[in-house]
Each structure stands twice: as C-alpha cells, then as structure tokens.
Amino acid sequence: MGTRQLRLNDSVQIRKRIHDFTGKTINVVLTDSTAIMGILEKISDTGIVLKNMRMKNVSYTFDNIAEIYFDTNA
C-alpha cells in the first residue's frame, strides 16, 4: 500500500480546502520555510490553530502559511 500526498500551495486553495482537514494531522510550511506538523484543531477567517506534538495549541495566520500538505493512503 502506497502513500499519496495532497499539497496546497496557493492561498486561495488553502482557504477553500482547509475545512476538509479538521481533526487530521497535517504539515504546514510557513513563508520562512519552517515546517510544522500537527492536528488541525480550529479554523478562523484569519488563520488556523494546530495542536503540535507537545499537545500545545499554536496559531498561524494564513498570511504566514506558504503550503499545506497531507498524506493519505493510495
């Protein structure tokens, strides 16, 4: 069984499809090339809240997000 990766690297796509990933583990790449992995907890008009691996909620604005990717089973 393989893994398929869904990548969203356009701000319009991210805002349109982000609701599909609520409660799932996603990877977020910020505009400064920092990559974060966490569970998508909340979505607002201005950004998202991720629960990181230390079980802390961290907020990121859509302006700082360059890309979101998500692994699925193929």
Rank of each mutant, 00 (worst) to 15 (best):
A66N: 13
H19G: 07
D45I: 00
M55G: 11
D10W: 06
R54L: 07
E41H: 15
I18L: 06
R54N: 14
I65E: 11
S11Q: 10
M1R: 11
T72S: 09
L8Y: 10
S44D: 10
Q13P: 01
F70N: 08
G23C: 10
M55R: 15
D32C: 04
R54A: 09
E67A: 10
R54T: 13
I18Q: 05
D45C: 00
G38I: 03
I68S: 01
G23P: 14
T72R: 05
I14D: 00
F21H: 02
T46K: 14
E67R: 07
Y60W: 14
V28A: 05
K56Q: 15
V12N: 06
K42R: 12
D10G: 06
K42D: 13
A66H: 13
I39G: 06
S11E: 08
D32N: 15
I43L: 07
R4A: 04
V49L: 10
I68H: 01
T22A: 04
N64D: 15
N57F: 08
H19L: 02
D20L: 09
I18N: 03
D32M: 04
H19V: 02
D71H: 12
L30H: 10
S44H: 08
S11A: 06
K56T: 13
I48N: 12
V29C: 02
I68L: 13
S44L: 00
L40W: 07
L50H: 15
I43Y: 10
E67Y: 01
L50F: 12
V12D: 09
I68V: 14
G47R: 12
L8A: 02
I36M: 10
N9R: 14
Y60V: 05
G2R: 15
L30N: 09
I18G: 02
T25C: 03
N57R: 14
R7F: 02
K42S: 10
D10N: 15
G23W: 13
S33A: 03
V29K: 02
I39P: 03
M53V: 07
R17H: 14
A74M: 07
H19W: 06
E67N: 05
R7A: 03
N73A: 04
H19T: 10
R54H: 14
R4V: 06
N57V: 04
I48S: 11
M55D: 15
D71K: 14
S33L: 01
I18S: 02
A74T: 11
A66F: 04
M1V: 10
T3R: 06
F70T: 02
T31F: 02
S59M: 08
V29R: 03
K51Y: 07
R4I: 03
V58A: 12
E41W: 11
L8S: 01
S33G: 02
T22E: 12
D10H: 13
R15N: 06
S33T: 11
S44R: 12
N52Y: 12
T31A: 04
D63S: 13
R15K: 15
T25M: 03
R15D: 00
Q13F: 00
V12W: 02
M37G: 11
M53C: 07
K56H: 14
R7Q: 09
T61C: 07
K56V: 10
V58L: 13
F21L: 10
T3V: 05
D45W: 02
G47T: 12
L50M: 12
R17P: 00
L30G: 07
D32I: 03
N64E: 15
Q5W: 03
T22H: 12
E67I: 00
R15E: 01
A74C: 07
